[in-house]
Design a protein around this nucleic acid. Structure first.
Length: 359
DNA sequence: AAGCCGGGGAG
DNA sequence: CTCCCAGGCTT
Protein backbone atom coordinates (compact mmCIF):
# COMPACT_ATOMS: atom_id res chain seq x y z
CA UNK A 1 0.00 0.00 0.00
CA UNK A 2 1.19 3.48 -0.77
CA UNK A 3 1.21 6.54 1.45
CA UNK A 4 -2.36 7.70 0.72
CA UNK A 5 -3.89 4.24 0.99
CA UNK A 6 -2.35 3.58 4.38
CA UNK A 7 -3.40 7.01 5.54
CA UNK A 8 -7.01 6.65 4.40
CA UNK A 9 -7.41 3.14 5.80
CA UNK A 10 -6.25 4.48 9.14
CA UNK A 11 -8.57 7.49 8.81
CA UNK A 12 -11.63 5.38 8.04
CA UNK A 13 -11.09 3.44 11.24
CA UNK A 14 -9.86 6.22 13.54
CA UNK A 15 -11.14 9.60 12.42
CA UNK A 16 -12.42 12.02 15.01
CA UNK A 17 -16.14 12.63 15.10
CA UNK A 18 -16.30 16.38 14.62
CA UNK A 19 -19.52 18.39 14.34
CA UNK A 20 -18.73 19.90 10.92
CA UNK A 21 -17.66 16.60 9.37
CA UNK A 22 -19.70 14.83 6.73
CA UNK A 23 -21.36 18.10 5.96
CA UNK A 24 -21.64 19.32 2.40
CA UNK A 25 -22.63 22.76 3.61
CA UNK A 26 -19.91 25.20 2.53
CA UNK A 27 -21.01 27.75 5.11
CA UNK A 28 -20.52 25.35 8.01
CA UNK A 29 -17.20 24.09 6.71
CA UNK A 30 -15.99 27.65 6.09
CA UNK A 31 -16.92 28.74 9.63
CA UNK A 32 -15.24 25.70 11.15
CA UNK A 33 -12.05 26.23 9.17
CA UNK A 34 -11.76 29.86 10.20
CA UNK A 35 -12.46 29.09 13.85
CA UNK A 36 -9.76 26.45 13.77
CA UNK A 37 -7.05 28.69 12.33
CA UNK A 38 -4.23 28.57 14.89
CA UNK A 39 -6.73 27.10 17.33
CA UNK A 40 -6.96 23.60 18.72
CA UNK A 41 -10.07 21.63 17.88
CA UNK A 42 -11.02 21.17 21.55
CA UNK A 43 -10.94 24.92 22.07
CA UNK A 44 -12.89 25.72 18.92
CA UNK A 45 -15.81 23.31 19.21
CA UNK A 46 -17.83 25.27 21.77
CA UNK A 47 -17.39 28.43 19.71
CA UNK A 48 -18.49 26.58 16.59
CA UNK A 49 -21.79 25.55 18.19
CA UNK A 50 -22.49 28.99 19.60
CA UNK A 51 -21.58 30.67 16.34
CA UNK A 52 -23.83 28.47 14.20
CA UNK A 53 -26.61 28.82 16.71
CA UNK A 54 -26.45 32.61 16.45
CA UNK A 55 -25.69 32.73 12.73
CA UNK A 56 -27.01 29.55 11.06
CA UNK A 57 -26.41 30.80 7.52
CA UNK A 58 -24.58 33.45 5.52
CA UNK A 59 -27.60 35.76 5.51
CA UNK A 60 -27.87 35.89 9.28
CA UNK A 61 -24.13 36.48 9.59
CA UNK A 62 -24.21 39.28 7.02
CA UNK A 63 -27.20 40.85 8.78
CA UNK A 64 -25.46 40.98 12.15
CA UNK A 65 -23.37 43.89 13.36
CA UNK A 66 -19.62 43.54 13.70
CA UNK A 67 -20.02 44.13 17.43
CA UNK A 68 -22.28 41.08 17.70
CA UNK A 69 -19.84 38.89 15.77
CA UNK A 70 -16.89 40.04 17.86
CA UNK A 71 -18.86 39.43 21.04
CA UNK A 72 -19.39 35.80 20.02
CA UNK A 73 -15.69 35.52 19.18
CA UNK A 74 -14.68 36.91 22.58
CA UNK A 75 -11.98 34.81 24.23
CA UNK A 76 -10.97 32.96 21.09
CA UNK A 77 -8.27 35.39 19.99
CA UNK A 78 -7.07 36.53 16.59
CA UNK A 79 -10.09 38.75 16.25
CA UNK A 80 -9.36 39.75 12.66
CA UNK A 81 -10.83 36.34 11.85
CA UNK A 82 -14.20 37.50 13.15
CA UNK A 83 -14.02 40.86 11.41
CA UNK A 84 -13.05 39.24 8.11
CA UNK A 85 -15.68 36.55 8.45
CA UNK A 86 -18.34 39.19 8.89
CA UNK A 87 -17.07 41.30 6.00
CA UNK A 88 -16.79 38.27 3.72
CA UNK A 89 -20.32 37.14 4.52
CA UNK A 90 -21.57 40.49 3.26
CA UNK A 91 -19.36 40.28 0.19
CA UNK A 92 -20.55 36.78 -0.69
CA UNK A 93 -24.13 37.91 -0.42
CA UNK A 94 -23.46 40.89 -2.70
CA UNK A 95 -21.21 39.41 -5.35
CA UNK A 96 -22.15 35.78 -5.43
CA UNK A 97 -25.80 36.25 -4.70
CA UNK A 98 -25.84 33.88 -1.74
CA UNK A 99 -24.10 31.11 -3.69
CA UNK A 100 -20.65 30.21 -2.49
CA UNK A 101 -17.77 30.03 -4.95
CA UNK A 102 -16.70 26.48 -5.80
CA UNK A 103 -13.02 26.80 -6.73
CA UNK A 104 -10.07 27.41 -4.43
CA UNK A 105 -8.96 30.27 -6.69
CA UNK A 106 -12.20 32.13 -6.06
CA UNK A 107 -12.13 31.34 -2.35
CA UNK A 108 -8.61 32.77 -2.13
CA UNK A 109 -9.94 36.19 -3.12
CA UNK A 110 -12.14 36.35 -0.04
CA UNK A 111 -10.91 38.19 3.04
CA UNK A 112 -9.63 35.90 5.75
CA UNK A 113 -9.31 32.99 3.33
CA UNK A 114 -5.75 31.96 2.55
CA UNK A 115 -4.22 28.91 0.86
CA UNK A 116 -5.07 26.59 3.71
CA UNK A 117 -8.72 27.56 4.17
CA UNK A 118 -9.43 27.75 0.44
CA UNK A 119 -8.02 24.27 -0.08
CA UNK A 120 -9.74 22.82 2.97
CA UNK A 121 -13.19 24.10 2.03
CA UNK A 122 -13.05 23.25 -1.67
CA UNK A 123 -11.49 19.83 -1.16
CA UNK A 124 -14.03 18.86 1.47
CA UNK A 125 -17.18 20.34 -0.05
CA UNK A 126 -16.44 20.37 -3.79
CA UNK A 127 -13.87 17.55 -4.04
CA UNK A 128 -11.19 19.74 -5.55
CA UNK A 129 -7.90 17.81 -5.50
CA UNK A 130 -5.82 20.44 -3.73
CA UNK A 131 -3.81 19.83 -0.56
CA UNK A 132 -4.55 21.83 2.57
CA UNK A 133 -1.34 22.41 4.50
CA UNK A 134 -1.59 23.29 8.16
CA UNK A 135 0.86 22.83 11.01
CA UNK A 136 -0.10 19.18 11.34
CA UNK A 137 0.52 18.42 7.70
CA UNK A 138 3.93 20.11 7.65
CA UNK A 139 4.93 18.00 10.62
CA UNK A 140 3.69 14.70 9.19
CA UNK A 141 5.35 15.26 5.83
CA UNK A 142 8.58 16.58 7.29
CA UNK A 143 8.92 13.50 9.48
CA UNK A 144 7.72 10.88 7.02
CA UNK A 145 10.22 12.02 4.40
CA UNK A 146 12.83 13.61 6.69
CA UNK A 147 12.45 16.88 4.85
CA UNK A 148 14.91 19.66 5.77
CA UNK A 149 12.67 22.37 4.29
CA UNK A 150 11.91 25.31 6.55
CA UNK A 151 8.14 25.55 6.95
CA UNK A 152 8.39 29.23 7.90
CA UNK A 153 9.70 30.27 4.49
CA UNK A 154 7.83 30.54 1.21
CA UNK A 155 10.38 28.30 -0.53
CA UNK A 156 9.98 25.66 2.12
CA UNK A 157 6.20 25.82 1.99
CA UNK A 158 6.35 25.38 -1.76
CA UNK A 159 8.33 22.16 -1.39
CA UNK A 160 5.77 20.77 1.03
CA UNK A 161 2.96 21.85 -1.27
CA UNK A 162 4.47 20.10 -4.29
CA UNK A 163 4.97 16.89 -2.38
CA UNK A 164 1.44 16.97 -1.00
CA UNK A 165 0.10 17.52 -4.51
CA UNK A 166 1.79 14.28 -5.54
CA UNK A 167 0.42 12.38 -2.56
CA UNK A 168 -3.18 13.57 -2.45
CA UNK A 169 -5.82 11.03 -3.46
CA UNK A 170 -7.84 12.70 -6.25
CA UNK A 171 -10.80 10.46 -5.47
CA UNK A 172 -10.94 11.53 -1.82
CA UNK A 173 -9.17 14.89 -1.53
CA UNK A 174 -11.20 16.09 1.44
CA UNK A 175 -10.63 12.90 3.36
CA UNK A 176 -6.94 12.94 2.51
CA UNK A 177 -6.55 16.45 3.89
CA UNK A 178 -8.52 15.72 7.04
CA UNK A 179 -6.69 12.44 7.52
CA UNK A 180 -3.34 14.22 7.43
CA UNK A 181 -4.56 16.65 10.06
CA UNK A 182 -6.04 13.93 12.27
CA UNK A 183 -2.83 11.95 12.04
CA UNK A 184 -0.81 15.01 13.01
CA UNK A 185 -3.10 15.88 15.91
CA UNK A 186 -3.64 12.37 17.28
CA UNK A 187 -0.51 10.39 16.42
CA UNK A 188 2.28 12.47 14.94
CA UNK A 189 2.14 14.99 17.77
CA UNK A 190 4.69 17.80 18.16
CA UNK A 191 6.28 16.10 21.16
CA UNK A 192 5.97 12.45 22.05
CA UNK A 193 4.60 11.09 18.77
CA UNK A 194 2.84 7.71 19.05
CA UNK A 195 4.88 6.00 16.34
CA UNK A 196 3.75 2.51 17.41
CA UNK A 197 0.21 3.38 16.40
CA UNK A 198 1.14 5.23 13.23
CA UNK A 199 0.01 3.74 9.91
CA UNK A 200 3.08 5.26 8.26
CA UNK A 201 5.66 3.99 10.73
CA UNK A 202 7.20 1.46 8.35
CA UNK A 203 8.03 4.12 5.79
CA UNK A 204 8.72 7.06 8.10
CA UNK A 205 12.31 8.24 7.68
CA UNK A 206 12.32 10.28 10.86
CA UNK A 207 11.34 7.19 12.84
CA UNK A 208 14.09 5.16 11.17
CA UNK A 209 16.56 7.85 12.24
CA UNK A 210 14.89 8.18 15.64
CA UNK A 211 14.81 11.89 14.91
CA UNK A 212 11.16 12.90 14.98
CA UNK A 213 11.98 15.84 17.22
CA UNK A 214 14.17 17.37 14.51
CA UNK A 215 11.19 17.87 12.23
CA UNK A 216 9.78 20.07 10.94
CA UNK A 217 12.46 22.74 10.61
CA UNK A 218 11.24 26.15 11.76
CA UNK A 219 12.60 29.62 12.33
CA UNK A 220 13.84 30.37 15.82
CA UNK A 221 11.18 32.19 17.77
CA UNK A 222 11.38 35.90 18.42
CA UNK A 223 11.67 37.69 21.72
CA UNK A 224 8.43 38.58 23.44
CA UNK A 225 7.60 42.28 23.66
CA UNK A 226 6.90 43.71 27.11
CA UNK A 227 4.15 46.30 27.45
CA UNK A 228 2.73 48.21 30.40
CA UNK A 229 -0.98 48.97 30.33
CA UNK A 230 -2.35 51.33 32.95
CA UNK A 231 -6.12 51.06 32.87
CA UNK A 232 -8.55 53.37 34.60
CA UNK A 233 -11.97 52.08 35.48
CA UNK A 234 -13.71 55.42 35.77
CA UNK A 235 -17.21 55.34 37.21
CA UNK A 236 -19.81 57.96 38.00
CA UNK A 237 -23.43 58.11 39.15
CA UNK A 238 -26.35 59.77 37.47
CA UNK A 239 -28.95 61.73 39.51
CA UNK A 240 -30.91 58.51 40.07
CA UNK A 241 -27.85 56.87 41.58
CA UNK A 242 -27.25 54.54 38.67
CA UNK A 243 -23.59 53.70 38.07
CA UNK A 244 -21.95 54.23 34.70
CA UNK A 245 -18.45 53.48 33.57
CA UNK A 246 -16.44 54.91 30.71
CA UNK A 247 -15.04 52.66 28.02
CA UNK A 248 -13.38 53.00 24.64
CA UNK A 249 -13.40 51.14 21.34
CA UNK A 250 -9.89 50.18 20.22
CA UNK A 251 -9.58 51.38 16.65
CA UNK A 252 -5.82 51.54 16.17
CA UNK A 253 -3.93 48.82 14.35
CA UNK A 254 -2.99 47.00 17.50
CA UNK A 255 -4.17 43.99 19.45
CA UNK A 256 -7.90 43.70 20.07
CA UNK A 257 -8.93 46.00 17.22
CA UNK A 258 -12.60 47.07 17.41
CA UNK A 259 -13.08 45.57 20.85
CA UNK A 260 -13.79 47.55 24.01
CA UNK A 261 -11.55 48.35 26.94
CA UNK A 262 -11.11 50.94 29.68
CA UNK A 263 -9.35 54.27 29.30
CA UNK A 264 -5.73 53.28 28.84
CA UNK A 265 -2.41 54.98 29.40
CA UNK A 266 0.38 52.81 28.04
CA UNK A 267 3.87 53.39 29.38
CA UNK A 268 7.23 51.98 28.36
CA UNK A 269 7.97 50.77 31.86
CA UNK A 270 6.34 50.09 35.20
CA UNK A 271 5.15 53.49 36.44
CA UNK A 272 3.90 54.49 39.90
CA UNK A 273 0.46 56.11 40.20
CA UNK A 274 1.85 59.50 41.27
CA UNK A 275 3.65 59.73 37.94
CA UNK A 276 0.63 58.57 35.99
CA UNK A 277 -1.54 61.22 37.61
CA UNK A 278 0.94 63.88 36.42
CA UNK A 279 1.01 62.58 32.88
CA UNK A 280 -0.31 65.03 30.24
CA UNK A 281 -2.86 62.44 29.14
CA UNK A 282 -4.31 62.32 32.65
CA UNK A 283 -4.02 66.05 33.29
CA UNK A 284 -5.98 66.64 30.13
CA UNK A 285 -8.84 64.58 31.59
CA UNK A 286 -8.46 65.89 35.14
CA UNK A 287 -6.70 69.26 35.37
CA UNK A 288 -7.84 69.49 38.98
CA UNK A 289 -6.51 66.70 41.13
CA UNK A 290 -9.51 67.03 43.42
CA UNK A 291 -11.98 66.25 40.66
CA UNK A 292 -11.49 62.50 40.94
CA UNK A 293 -11.19 59.96 43.70
CA UNK A 294 -9.19 56.76 43.60
CA UNK A 295 -10.93 53.94 45.43
CA UNK A 296 -10.17 50.32 46.21
CA UNK A 297 -6.98 48.43 45.61
CA UNK A 298 -5.00 48.64 42.41
CA UNK A 299 -5.62 45.42 40.52
CA UNK A 300 -2.59 43.93 38.82
CA UNK A 301 -2.26 41.13 36.36
CA UNK A 302 0.33 39.80 33.95
CA UNK A 303 -1.33 38.80 30.71
CA UNK A 304 0.74 36.63 28.41
CA UNK A 305 0.07 36.51 24.70
CA UNK A 306 2.13 34.60 22.18
CA UNK A 307 4.10 37.64 21.07
CA UNK A 308 3.85 40.03 23.97
CA UNK A 309 3.57 40.14 27.73
CA UNK A 310 1.26 42.79 29.09
CA UNK A 311 1.82 44.07 32.60
CA UNK A 312 -1.59 45.45 33.41
CA UNK A 313 -2.82 47.61 36.27
CA UNK A 314 -6.35 48.74 36.90
CA UNK A 315 -6.97 51.91 38.90
CA UNK A 316 -10.52 52.41 40.08
CA UNK A 317 -11.58 56.03 39.86
CA UNK A 318 -14.79 57.68 40.93
CA UNK A 319 -15.82 60.96 39.36
CA UNK A 320 -18.60 63.31 40.38
CA UNK A 321 -21.16 63.65 37.56
CA UNK A 322 -20.50 67.35 37.14
CA UNK A 323 -16.91 66.52 36.17
CA UNK A 324 -17.80 64.13 33.36
CA UNK A 325 -18.34 66.56 30.47
CA UNK A 326 -14.98 65.84 28.85
CA UNK A 327 -15.16 62.14 29.66
CA UNK A 328 -18.44 61.90 27.81
CA UNK A 329 -16.82 63.41 24.72
CA UNK A 330 -13.85 61.10 24.65
CA UNK A 331 -15.27 57.87 26.01
CA UNK A 332 -18.51 55.92 25.94
CA UNK A 333 -20.63 55.84 29.10
CA UNK A 334 -22.31 52.48 29.69
CA UNK A 335 -23.93 50.79 32.64
CA UNK A 336 -22.65 47.44 33.87
CA UNK A 337 -25.32 45.44 32.06
CA UNK A 338 -24.46 47.07 28.75
CA UNK A 339 -20.76 46.52 29.39
CA UNK A 340 -21.33 42.82 29.91
CA UNK A 341 -22.82 42.52 26.44
CA UNK A 342 -19.87 44.13 24.67
CA UNK A 343 -16.89 42.41 23.08
CA UNK A 344 -13.95 42.65 25.43
CA UNK A 345 -10.46 41.16 25.43
CA UNK A 346 -9.86 38.45 27.97
CA UNK A 347 -7.63 40.75 30.01
CA UNK A 348 -10.43 43.29 30.44
CA UNK A 349 -12.87 40.59 31.46
CA UNK A 350 -10.39 39.40 34.09
CA UNK A 351 -9.54 42.86 35.41
CA UNK A 352 -13.20 43.82 35.56
CA UNK A 353 -14.14 40.87 37.76
CA UNK A 354 -10.92 40.55 39.77
CA UNK A 355 -11.25 40.52 43.53
CA UNK A 356 -8.59 42.40 45.44
CA UNK A 357 -5.13 42.83 44.03
CA UNK A 358 -2.49 40.48 42.81
CA UNK A 359 1.13 41.27 42.34
C1' DA B 1 10.60 38.21 3.86
C1' DA B 2 9.52 39.70 8.23
C1' DG B 3 6.34 41.48 11.58
C1' DC B 4 1.97 41.28 13.68
C1' DC B 5 -2.24 39.28 15.58
C1' DG B 6 -4.84 35.82 21.30
C1' DG B 7 -5.65 32.57 24.18
C1' DG B 8 -5.14 28.17 26.11
C1' DG B 9 -3.58 23.31 26.78
C1' DA B 10 0.16 19.93 27.09
C1' DG B 11 4.55 18.56 28.77
C1' DC C 1 8.62 27.73 32.09
C1' DT C 2 8.27 26.31 26.44
C1' DC C 3 5.89 24.96 22.47
C1' DC C 4 2.33 25.37 19.19
C1' DC C 5 -2.37 24.92 17.67
C1' DA C 6 -7.25 22.85 10.86
C1' DG C 7 -3.19 30.69 9.34
C1' DG C 8 -3.74 35.19 7.19
C1' DC C 9 -2.86 40.11 6.64
C1' DT C 10 0.15 44.12 6.49
C1' DT C 11 4.35 46.39 5.75
Amino acid sequence: MNFSDRLLVWYDANKRALPWRDSDNPYKVWISEVILQQTRVEQGIAYYFRFLDAFPDVISLASASEDEVLRLWQGLGYYSRARNLHQTAREILEKHGKNFPESSEEWMRLKGVGPYTAAAVTSIVFKEAIPALDGNVYRVLARAFALPYNMDTSKGKKQFYQLATQLIDPKRPGDFNQAMMDLGAMICKPSGPLCLKCPLNTLCLAKQQNAAKNYPVRNPKKAVRERFFNYFKITTKDPQGKIFLFIKKRQENDIWKNMYDFPLLETTEDTPPETLFKHPWWLHLFPDEKSFLMEGQVRQRVHKLTHQTIHAKLFQIFVHPENTVLLNKIFIAVDFDQFEQMAKPRLIELLHWDRGEKS
